[in-house]
Design a protein around this nucleic acid. Structure first.
Lengths: 153, 153
DNA sequence: ACAATACTTGACTCAATCAGTCGGGATTCT
DNA sequence: AGAATCCCGACTGATTGAGTCAAGTATTGT
């Protein structure tokens, strides 16, 4: 699994939305400025996240984006799978994006059995972390802030 | 970490050399045929593995390749790092290929802290497996064979 | 009503990487 | 000498990554 720039931007944007989760929406422009993400590119990314059901949007003057489900219900594994494809290092051990490889018998392939372990290790971490967990980490790592809105992501 | 075709071919070739480890060499052509790897491409790959010190070669009529160090001294982590670059999903948590990212304070970055865990999980598996371990797995997985030279990789 | 604000959609560019291919050169064994 | 084998650099064609851009459509404050 390799996280592209696009993927990193997406996570950062989702984290901002997680930290500000509530009934209201956040403008694309604000996220872009706060996180130093090219605005046009972020539009594209949020659009993608929207059609995947991670966020919802509101148009017009007071428009913006917010998380569709609660931050505790979105795992990093889900997000990254949607954005980057397989978490596994090779297709033949991927559960969600399985792709047969050229070896004659997968059950007897030693390389595959190692890659299986790598996959499980990656998925183990990523399935266990939700956007809500990420928000907790932000608060933990940054300790008590003077201004509670001053957090940095 | 994503394993490219090139990387998979390299592992397969090293595994063949591990299974046949001894004073003699193996011809590129034989590896290519046995493993269904385009010969010219494999030449390129083995050349790379040679300049990295994983294998050594002998030219001329009875020429070929063999492992330079013992199969127990080459970890998959070493091989893949050389072939594919960083094992870590993002540069800012890579030990061997560190690259600063754009966030203002890495120590306080929640995403980074998760990616750190992913990296550790991947490295944990890959540092622990050597070519010799892979050979053991081949033998385990394939059980007792009629002809001891009949193994498949 | 209507202008301003924001999201929406699809096409487009530019550079880098991947997966090979190819031609010919250098060595070594017989 | 001649065949087998590795050695090396250049080349190609397809795909992906990171953005950019233009012209929409929807919403709302005044």
């Amino acid at each position: 699994m390799k996280l592209s720039q696009r993927g990193e931007y997406a996570l950062r944007a989702l984290l901002v939305m997680g930290m500000n989760h509530g009934p209201g929406v956040i403008r694309i422009k604000d996220i872009a400025q706060q996180q130093n993400i090219p605005r046009r590119f972020l539009e594209q990314i949020l659009n993608d996240l929207k059609s995947a059901g991670f966020v919802q949007s509101k148009r017009g003057v007071a428009g913006g984006y917010r998380l569709q489900r609660g931050p505790g219900e979105i795992s990093l594994a889900d997000i990254i799978r949607h954005l980057e494809g397989p978490l596994a290092p090779v297709g033949c051990v991927s559960v969600n994006y399985y792709q047969r490889c050229s070896c004659p018998d997968e059950g007897k392939c030693a390389i595959r059995s190692v890659m299986q372990e790598v996959r499980d290790a990656i998925v183990g971490v990523l399935e266990g972390v939700t956007v809500a967990h990420l928000c907790d980490r932000v608060r933990d790592l940054q300790g008590p802030l003077e201004n509670p809105l001053d957090y940095v992501i």
